[in-house]
Nucleic acid binder design. Structure first.
Length: 114
DNA sequence: AGTCTGACTAGTA
DNA sequence: CTACTAGCCAGAC
């Protein structure tokens, strides 16, 4: 990984956290951003996901949704249905591009990663 | 080097 | 309840 630069450490941390998301669970951009210390940096989490395509490591970006549980990032996958398919394959029920029982499946790193 | 944009969120009207 | 605004920070032009 070429993210040794301190300026890109945020991206690296995002990848680390996303890779730690348990199967069948989901989290939000804001939760990750908040866990990394910057609540308002939620956009950077999504930006990191956009850059995950260039990263050699596999990033389960499908487990990261917005605060409403909506699969906003689905259009950035290879196909718009990839994200939902991956989630459903892990046991997450997705309906109308949104995670069902999002609050129950939500995985907050600041709370559950301890 | 300045400006715009973006897979977001919280606050205010 | 919905709509709009501001803040956030790195990358692309």
């Amino acid at each position: 990984m070429k993210y040794s630069d301190k300026t890109t450490s945020f991206f690296h941390d995002v990848y680390e956290v996303v890779k730690l998301i348990p199967k069948g669970r989901v989290t939000s951009y804001g939760a990750i951003a908040s866990f990394l210390g910057s609540r308002g940096s939620s956009r950077m989490v999504g930006w990191a996901m956009n850059a995950c395509h260039t990263c050699t490591d596999y990033i389960p970006a499908h487990r990261v949704v917005n605060r409403n549980g909506l699969l906003t990032g689905r259009l950035h996958f290879e196909t718009p249905e990839t994200m939902q398919s991956l989630l459903e394959d892990e046991g997450v029920v997705v309906h109308n591009h949104a995670v069902v029982d999002f609050e129950r499946l939500h995985w907050d790193p600041a709370t559950e990663l301890l």
